[in-house]
């Protein structure tokens, strides 16, 4: 594997190999001194064209736990409006000395394009509404820890699928690992075509609430226009919100996931976010381990 850009073409073997390494990294992070020297002398470039505190901090922690140095490039607004092409920016960062680039961008395909221009590995840390592969990996790790395996697991992804890179990454990764995914959303928040998607569709959360093992909630992405295609938030909650009443109807073994940031009171009730079977903070913790595993994989390094 030279880059991690998308989950679409990852096999169960690819995914399992990363998850196994992530288990080892989770063990490293539990040590009294949670740090190994494996990537000493390497520099990880954190290239963020879109605001993100959580993902950037998670990658930074992962790099530092492997003893790599980090440098951060932050930019908002179009590279075009600044008069510099994305290619120029990428080549500049490579010349400064990035040995690996973590790229977050508001436009689809940005990390893919950069991977064609530079000679170092590229991790897609979210490209517009396309993909966010490390999020899907950390979700898979969280579910594997809880259930032992993903094969046969019923996963409902609820909310703004159309504008969600998390949903796109998870649909392909979870399916490859054997889970059965159902998308739950109004037609205006589903992709316009689901041709080739290995999913079922439901148009009301009550259709899945009692039968699902995993309730995966997404926020409405107002910044991408998601709020313009539902009539009002109360109406959205009435059909798609995971209220405490609905949580109470879920099976006792089921769990709730959310990639954050959560809009409490909309897609997830406050009490559900705090509930025992909400794994939101486990997801965040696992993010560091998974990102360590991905960096090691791309550097071709073996943890000893």
């Amino acid at each position: 594997m030279n880059h991690l850009l998308s989950t679409e073409y990852l096999s169960a073997t690819d995914l399992t190999r990363i998850l196994n390494m992530a288990d080892e990294m989770a063990e490293v992070l539990d040590r009294p001194i949670p740090k190994v020297p494996t990537l000493r002398g390497k520099t990880v470039g954190l290239v963020f064209f879109e605001n993100s505190t959580r993902t950037r901090l998670s990658f930074e922690r992962a790099a530092k736990a492997l003893s790599a140095d980090t440098m951060t490039f932050g930019s908002q607004g179009s590279s075009m409006t600044k008069g510099e092409s994305l290619r120029d920016t990428a080549l500049t960062l490579e010349a400064i000395g990035a040995d690996l680039m973590v790229v977050r961008h508001y436009a689809v395909g940005a990390a893919h394009r950069i991977s064609e221009w530079v000679d170092v590995p590229v991790i897609n840390a979210g490209d517009g509404t396309n993909q966010h592969p490390t999020q899907a990996l950390l979700d898979a790790l969280t579910l594997r820890q809880r259930f032992g395996k993903l094969d046969g697991l019923a996963v409902a992804i609820v909310g703004d699928i159309r504008h969600s890179r998390v949903a796109r990454s998870n649909v392909f990764a979870l399916n490859a690992l054997g889970a059965e995914v159902t998308l739950v959303a109004p037609a205006t928040l589903l992709p316009t075509s689901l041709e080739g998607w290995p999913v079922k569709v439901a148009y009301h959360i009550d259709e899945v609430v009692e039968d699902t093992d995993v309730m995966y909630l997404l926020r409405i992405q107002a910044e991408r226009g998601g709020d313009q295609v539902v009539p009002s938030l109360p109406e959205y909650v009435s059909r798609f919100g995971l209220t405490e009443q609905r949580y109470a109807r879920m099976s006792g073994d089921s769990v709730v996931l959310h990639p954050g940031p959560m809009n409490r009171g909309v897609e997830i009730a406050h009490g559900v976010a705090e509930a025992e079977r909400s794994l939101v903070l486990s997801q965040v913790r696992n993010g560091v381990a998974v990102r360590m595993a991905v960096m090691l994989t791309l550097f071709g390094a073996h943890h000893d």
């Binding site: 395909g109 517009g128 509404t129 890179r165 992709p191 316009t192 041709e195 080739g196 998607w197």
Partner: peptide, 14 residues
Amino acid sequence: EGAVSSVLGIRGIP
């Protein structure tokens, strides 16, 4: 707007 745009997440033109 079609299957390719939906997978990519790029907004389509119908």
